[in-house]
């Protein structure tokens, strides 16, 4: 059905990084995530696909407790990273978010310089001992965000002055600068041109060597290209979760098949 390239989709024997059990999310009275169970593996790219409003972003934001910031949002169930319950009272969400980086659906650079955007995370976590180290971290992050060549001559100009796609790659650079173990990406390529998209996909594949990457995408091709595992959400339910190759060639659920062939969405 989809042209699945070889190599990237090979599923290695990996450890489970994130376990979600019976997760329910409510926005006030709206039941946005209904009883989701999933195991996300390390050294793997997991794609979340599904029609708009089905709860992909909501579930993604549960993994770094970003939903805590929404007053009306209530999360039930059990989410564990490396076996530790992240909703445990003793867990500080600040520490969790340093471990679980996030790229948001809309690019949101700080209204500061490009350099400061990337350097902020490493700075507050004390990752650099001096300016030279910080410079190295910033350069490395910007290179991995596939934006170094475009901004290396104007690191001090404001990040908000970049184009939408450049801003999104800056946000990716900012997220990887803190060396998270899990990287959550909410439609990171929706504002990017094909070349930048290819660069970001390259980055995602590279990040997989060390991290667990979860990516929300509306592009079936992208899910097929970069991910090893795919989860299909529909109306708040996790309908199907399996190897990407399996989902795109031989889905079990009829809704999955309808969606990837373009009949619902």
């Amino acid at each position: 059905m989809y042209d699945v390239p070889h190599g990237r989709n090979e599923v290695a024997v990996t450890d489970v990084k994130i376990t979600a059990r019976n997760v329910q999310v409510y926005y006030g009275d709206t039941h946005a995530i209904k009883d989701v169970n999933v195991e996300i593996e390390s050294n793997t790219v997991t794609a979340f696909i599904g029609p708009s409003g089905c709860g992909k972003s909501t579930f993604l934001r549960c993994i770094n407790r970003m939903n805590d910031t929404i007053d009306i949002c209530r999360v039930e169930g059990d989410i564990r990273i490396d076996g530790d319950d992240i909703y445990d009272k003793r867990v500080d969400p600040v520490q969790l978010r340093a471990k679980v980086g996030m790229v948001f659906q809309k690019p949101n650079p700080f209204p500061k310089s490009i350099y400061d955007n990337v350097a902020y995370g490493p700075k507050i976590h004390g990752m650099a001992r001096n300016k030279a180290e910080l410079d190295d971290i910033v350069e490395r992050a910007l290179r991995r965000g596939a934006i170094w060549d475009e901004v290396k001559d104007r690191l001090q100009s404001p990040g908000t002055g970049l184009s939408g796609g450049q801003q999104q790659r800056l946000c990716i650079a900012r997220a990887v600068a803190t060396e998270p173990e899990v990287l959550l990406m909410d439609e990171p390529c929706s504002a990017l041109d094909p070349i930048a998209t290819a660069q970001v996909e390259e980055l995602i594949d590279e990040l997989r060597q060390n991290y667990a990457v979860v990516i929300v995408t509306h592009s079936m091709q992208q899910a097929a290209r970069v991910s090893q595992k795919t989860a299909f959400f529909h109306l708040g339910n996790l309908v199907e979760y399996d190897d990407t190759t399996k989902i795109f060639t031989n889905p079990e659920d009829s809704r999955t098949e309808s969606y990837i062939t373009g009949r619902i969405g």
């Binding site: 770094n64 970003m66 910031t69 600040v94 520490q95 978010r97 340093a98 980086g101 996030m102 948001f104 809309k106 949101n108 650079p109 700080f110 209204p111 902020y120 995370g121 507050i124 976590h125 946000c171 900012r174 997220a175 600068a177 803190t178």
Partner: peptide, 18 residues
């Protein structure tokens, strides 16, 4: 101040006070 700025900062692991 738009919430996206707060989310961005929280997302890289800043504390509420930061």
């Amino acid at each position: 101040v738009p919430p996206s700025i707060r989310e961005a900062a929280l997302g890289v692991g800043a504390s509420k006070q930061q």
